[in-house]
Design a protein around this nucleic acid. Structure first.
Lengths: 350, 350
DNA sequence: ATGAAAGCGCTAACAC
DNA sequence: GTGTTAGCGCTTTCAT
C-alpha cells in the first residue's frame, strides 16, 4: 500500500494525494477530504525513508551518551525524546562507554542514517572523533567543552553558582572543615567543579588545602575509597562535598559500613541531582544541574541550527545554572548541635 | 557524494561499486580494492534510507517502554541497543507513560519508520493498540502477556522460582509473619507475583491471610503508604516481601522515618533487582529478574522471526527464571537473634 | 564478472 | 488547483 494506491482510490493524482496528506492549503477541500478518508480507511502511513530520500531530511537527531545505565542520562534521554516527538523528530541514541571504538561506530551510524544534528553528552570524549560529522556540516551541540564554531553550539554550565551555595550552606551550619572529593581530573567538568569549590571556600576564608581534597572517579567505589581516606586523617572533616552524586552515595555507604551516621557525624553534599539522590537514606542534599533543562537546551540548539536559513558564522552559546537542593544529608556541625540542644536539622528541607 | 561518485572515481559501474561495498564475493578483487580505496579516501558512507527503500528492510527494531526514567528500563535499553548494533540494527525507542495516546503515537512512529519488529516492554498496556502492527505482519515480542500467534513471541517469567526462594530464605531466618505488598492488581505481572507469594507461603505452612497482604502501586510512595499500614497493625509482620524494588525502597524510607532499623527490626525483600537496589542502605536483598537477559531474549525473538524464511504458525516462547540475590536487608527475626547472641546476619551475602 | 537500466515510495518542479 | 514526470541514492534483475 503506497501513495499511488491512495491516489487511485481517491481518484486523484499522486501529487494531489501527496499535497493533501501534507496539508498543503491550496488543495481543494473536497479532494483533500476524499484523500483523507481513503488514508484512514486503509490505515495508510507514509514511508519515512522515501520521504527522507527525496527531501534530503531524515528528521532524526543523534544523541550520544556514555552509557544509558549511568543514572545521569535517563532523564536526559526522556526529555530529549519527548521534545523530539513534539517536533516530529526521531532520536538515534548511541552510547560510547567512553570507548573510542564505540564512539567511532556511533559517528558512523549517525552519518549512515543521515542525522540532522547531534547532541554529544559524553563528558570528556575526544572531539577529534567527531571530525567526520563536522566535515558533513552536521550541527553539533556540546556540553561544556570546546570553542564555538560554525554549526557547533555549546551549553556552558555555571558550576560556581550551585557549588557556592553548597559551601555557604555548610558554612552556615558551622562547618569549617569541608572536604572535597574530585572527579577524574582528565574530565574538564570535574576540574571545573573542583575549581568552583576552591573559589567558594577561599572567598569566605575557609581553608581548602590539599589535605581536604581527595581524588575520586565519579563512581560509588571511588567515593567509598575517598571517604575511607578522609576518615583516616588525623584532622577529620565534618562535611564533604562531592564532585557528583554517585561519589556522595559511596561516601554514605562507607560511612554506613564504619558506623558513622549521616548527617549527625558527617554532612555530605552531592552534585548533579540524579533521581537516585532522592531515594537514598537520608535523601541527599545536592547541587542540581537540571537534566531536563540540559536536554531542552540541547534540543533547541540543534533545532535552531537546522532551521537557520542563512548560515551563521558560529553556533549559539547557552548557559545552565546550577542550584543547591536541600534534603537531609546535612546538619549543624556536632559541636554546635550540642549547644543548640541537639536538634537534628537547623534548616528545613524545602 | 554518492555511489555514482564512487563508481566514477573507481572507474567501474555503480552496480560493481555496490557489489564491492556489500562484499559480494564474485567481484574481481582488483576492482573491489579500487572501490574500497575510493570509499575510504572520500569517507563515503552509504545512505541507509536509500538502502532501506530499495531493499524493503529498515534494519530498525522498535522498543516500547513505559518510561526510560523508570529504573527498570535503562539496562534493558542498554543491552538491547548493544546487541542490535552487533547485528547492524538500529533501535527506535519510544515511551508510553502508560498513556494510550502515547502508545498510539509510538505505534504510528514505528510503522512510519517501517521497523522490522517491536519489543513491547510496557507491562499492562492494551494489546488492542498494537493491531496496526499485527495487520502489517510486524514481528512482536511481549513479556508475560497474551497468547502466541503468528509472528508474536512471548517471554514468560518464572516468578515462582525466585519468590519461593525469598519466602524460604525468610522462613529460614525464623520469620513467620511475612507480609506482602502487591503491585497494581490490574497488571498481570503484579498479580502473578502475588500469587507466587501465596503459593510459596502456603506450601510451607505459613499464614498468608489478607491481613498480611496490602496493596501497593509499584512506586516508592505506594511502598511508604503500605509500610505505614503494615506497621499500624496490632500483629506486626517481621518481614515484608515487595512486588518490586521501588516498593521495597518505600518501605525502607518509611521505616527510616519512624525509626525502625532494617534489617534488625524488619527484614525487607524486593523484586526486580534494579541497579538502585545495590545503592540503597542497607543494600537490598531482592529477587532478580535479569534485565539484560530479558533484553537478550527479546532481541533474539525478534531476530528469529525476521530471519525465518518459511512462516511459522506461531512465534516462539521463552522463559526467564527469577532468582533471589542476598544482600543486607534481611536478618534473623529479632527473638531468634537474641538467642543466638545478636549476630546481625545468619546468612552471609554471596 | 560487469554494466545498463528499472524501480523502491515519495515530493516538487513544471506544465496545464 | 491539478496532473505528469523526473529523480532522491541505492540494489538488483537482465543482458552481455
Amino acid at each position: 500500500m503506497d501513495i499511488r494506491e491512495i491516489a487511485k482510490r481517491a481518484k486523484v493524482s499522486t501529487a494531489t494525494a501527496s499535497r493533501a496528506i501534507n496539508r498543503v492549503p491550496t488543495v481543494n477541500p473536497q479532494l483533500a477530504k476524499r484523500v483523507w478518508s481513503v488514508v484512514e480507511e486503509l490505515g495508510y502511513y507514509p514511508n519515512t525513508q522515501a520521504r527522507a530520500l527525496v527531501s534530503g531530511r531524515s528528521r532524526i537527531f543523534g544523541l550520544i551518551v556514555s552509557e544509558i545505565t549511568n543514572p545521569f542520562f535517563p532523564e536526559i534521554v526522556q526529555v530529549f525524546e519527548r521534545i523530539a516527538v513534539q517536533h516530529d523528530y526521531e532520536i538515534l541514541l548511541t552510547s560510547t562507554g567512553n570507548d573510542p571504538k564505540r564512539m567511532e561506530s556511533s559517528v558512523r551510524r549517525m552519518i549512515e542514517r543521515r542525522v540532522e544534528g547531534v547532541a554529544i553528552m559524553t563528558f570528556g570524549m575526544e572531539e577529534v572523533l567527531l571530525e567526520d560529522l563536522k566535515l558533513r556540516k552536521v550541527p553539533l551541540v556540546f556540553v561544556d567543552v570546546g570553542p564555538l564554531r560554525a554549526r557547533v553550539s555549546n551549553i556552558r554550565i555555571d558550576y560556581l553558582h550551585g557549588i557556592r551555595q553548597a559551601v555557604q550552606h555548610l558554612a552556615a551550619l558551622r562547618h569549617e572543615k569541608i572536604a572535597f572529593i574530585t572527579g577524574p581530573r582528565r574530565i574538564k567538568s570535574a576540574r571545573a567543579r573542583e575549581h568552583a569549590y576552591l573559589h567558594s571556600m577561599l572567598e569566605i576564608g575557609l581553608p581548602a588545602d590539599s589535605a581536604f581534597i581527595v581524588e575520586g572517579d565519579h563512581t560509588m567505589e571511588g567515593g567509598m575509597a575517598a571517604c575511607a581516606l578522609l576518615l583516616s586523617k588525623p584532622d577529620r572533616p565534618t562535611a564533604v562535598l562531592c564532585s557528583n552524586d554517585m561519589t556522595a552515595i559511596g561516601v554514605m555507604r562507607k560511612s554506613y559500613e564504619v558506623g558513622i551516621t549521616i548527617p549527625r557525624d558527617l554532612s555530605v553534599v552531592g552534585f548533579d541531582d540524579i533521581r537516585l539522590a532522592q531515594f537514598v537514606l537520608p535523601p541527599l542534599t545536592t547541587v542540581q544541574m537540571s537534566q531536563s533543562e540540559l536536554a531542552r537546551l540541547a534540543f533547541h540548539a540543534l533545532l535552531t541550527e537546522v532551521e537557520r536559513e542563512t548560515p551563521a558564522p558560529e553556533g549559539s552559546e547557552y548557559t545552565l545554572k546550577t542550584n543547591l537542593v536541600l534534603r537531609e544529608s546535612t546538619s549543624l556541625v556536632a559541636s554546635a548541635a550540642k549547644r543548640s540542644g541537639g536538634k537534628r536539622r537547623e534548616i528545613p528541607s524545602s
